[in-house]
Simulated scan of single mutants.
Amino acid sequence: MIHIYFAAKDVRWDEYEAPLRKALDEKGLSYSLSDKCDDPSIIDYIVYAPNGPLKDFSPFSRAKAVLSLWAGVEDVVGNPTLKIPLARMVDSGLSEGMVEWVTGHVLRHHLGMDLHIHGQDGVWRDYVPPLARTRTVGILGLGALGQACGEALSALNFNVLGWSKSKKQLDNITCHSGEEGLKTVLRSSEILVLLLPKTPETENILNIETLALMPKGAKIINPGRGPLINDDALLAALDSGQTGHATLDVFRIEPLPADHPYWAHPNVTVTPHIASETRSDTASQVIAENIRRGEAGLPYLHLVNRTAGY
């Protein structure tokens, strides 16, 4: 019997219980699954959300792995009580949702849709957007989400440049790495999408210096992590016209405080961390597969590199 503890908020248990049981049953596993844990010493796997009740992993002496429901693990990767493997969520539903959100906002800025949506004032604005093949879109972060978004944008004929910490080679995406590679991507990106994890190396990757490298009037789209952007630097770039618009889905403090300057800025669009959400049906399949692999002695999927932080 495999003992599985679901350590997340109550609302998530209501959402996940049935899909998890279905996915585990399909794997032919014999298990007990509960969102209550009276005896941590018998638990084999922890299905985990960083905003849930569990903060101390030390009582779970038998546990084999922590399987996160979140793609981001910055809130748990440094927990000193976590000594066992940690897997992050890489979920097809998460990727699909991110691709749809990113593609929608890239097209919005590429086509200049705001000009007509907000310009219903009797003025005939004779603006014809360029074709996608003449527009360069940069993506910082070429993990599963960055790759999926890059492939979708490339399929629409955008010239897609990507940057990652380590070298990558991907079809239809011109890949760069390292400090000079970052500068190359920034200098060319008329629209820039941020899909990096939050690490000490990526925090404030958009700052006064890097924003100044971009083409004047470039658009920023951030569905990745709030701390990737120095807020004061972005606001200054928006005020000067160096940055044309920022569409932001993630922030250092969430919900974004009502008095934050982003709310009132005419060239900022705030969305409430909705770019993509883990889907319970597809995420449950990922969790069940990792438990099956653990029981079969196979490597876990999507293991976190503790040193890299993701």
Rank of each mutant, 00 (worst) to 15 (best):
I2A: 07
I42A: 13
L192S: 00
L182V: 12
E203T: 14
R125I: 02
L145M: 09
C149A: 09
Y300I: 02
S68L: 07
K36G: 12
P299K: 09
S68Q: 14
R125L: 08
G52E: 02
I2G: 02
I274V: 15
P266N: 05
N305P: 02
A144Q: 09
I2T: 13
T202C: 15
G52L: 07
I221N: 01
Y31P: 02
N290F: 02
F57Q: 00
P257G: 01
M98K: 09
A18N: 08
L170D: 04
I4Q: 03
D38V: 08
K216A: 14
L235E: 05
L54N: 11
Y127D: 04
P129W: 01
W163C: 11
L156R: 01
N305D: 15
P227Q: 05
N51G: 14
W101E: 03
H265P: 09
T269A: 06
G112Q: 01
L82W: 06
V128R: 03
M1S: 15
R133G: 03
A18C: 03
L115N: 01
M1E: 07
A49I: 08
S177V: 06
L33I: 09
T174Y: 06
L20W: 05
V304N: 12
N207G: 08
M113N: 02
V99E: 11
L142Q: 04
V304K: 00
Q147F: 07
T184D: 05
V77Q: 04
L206D: 03
I2C: 04
Y31S: 10
P80D: 06
G146C: 10
T103F: 08
N79G: 03
D35N: 13
Y300L: 15
R187T: 12
L156C: 05
A283V: 08
C149T: 08
M214T: 12
G78P: 06
W70Q: 14
E254K: 12
S58C: 11
A87H: 12
K22N: 08
H105T: 04
E190D: 10
K167F: 09
N51R: 13
P197G: 01
L24V: 14
R125Q: 13
A264K: 15
K167L: 15
S284Q: 02
D75G: 05
S58N: 15
G241W: 04
C175N: 03
G178F: 07
L94F: 14
K27G: 09
S154C: 06
V137Q: 00
L82A: 08
H118V: 05
T199L: 13
A155T: 03
R108Y: 10
L107A: 05
I173W: 00
P266Y: 08
V102Y: 06
A288K: 01
T136F: 03
S164D: 11
S276V: 01
Q285K: 15
E180A: 13
I173R: 08
A71Y: 04
A258M: 12
R62Q: 14
D249Q: 05
I139C: 07
F60V: 14
H116V: 07
A237L: 02
Y300C: 09
